[in-house]
């Protein structure tokens, strides 16, 4: 799908402009602090917590969202999993081909699956896409498939 192939070929500035300015500013600080480590920056976003502060909300101890889980869902979205067929169709049929729109649809769809708002995970989606290093989409999907292949141990005789 051309739109998805293009989005993973986008450069950092293009992808940063697809999210809110205050979010992009935070990501730029993360990247500066981590010498452009996209995955650590993604963890910094997902695990952010105000230091030494007890929180006074009503849902304590809710399960954290892990970067690996998001990467798994991103793979499903980009590599053709049926679960995201409708969302990919939405992107393909829309006249809006901007990165902002595509990242928005991807984030909302993946967020729905993992129980998080799209606007919360959009910056992580951007960082995960940047971490692919402009690899060709097909090659990345194949690589992900290979790394997940089960290793079967030989039977003992």
């Amino acid at each position: 799908m051309e739109e998805l192939t293009n989005i993973i070929q986008s450069d950092q500035d293009e992808l940063m402009s697809s999210i809110d300015e205050f979010q992009a500013d935070i990501l730029k600080t993360f990247l500066k602090n981590t010498s452009n480590d996209y995955l650590t920056s993604a963890d910094n976003w997902l695990n952010a917590t105000t230091a030494n502060t007890a929180k006074f909300g009503g849902e304590q101890g809710k399960a954290k969202i892990y970067r690996d889980k998001l990467l798994e869902e991103l793979e499903k979205f980009l590599c053709g999993a049926e679960q995201y067929e409708e969302d990919r169709k939405k992107i393909a049929e829309s006249s809006d081909k901007s990165q902002q729109y595509i990242i928005g649809v991807m984030s909302a769809a993946i967020g729905k699956t993992i129980g998080a708002a799209g606007t919360f995970i959009a910056p992580v989606i951007v960082l995960l896409i940047l971490s692919l290093g402009k690899m060709a989409l097909n090659a990345w999907c194949e690589m992900r498939k290979e790394t997940k292949k089960q290793v079967t141990l030989p039977k003992k005789t």
Partner: peptide, 10 residues
């Protein structure tokens, strides 16, 4: 957003 607690309390 909450109150001071070493390590976030809990």
């Amino acid at each position: 957003i909450g109150s001071y607690a070493p390590g976030g309390g809990g």
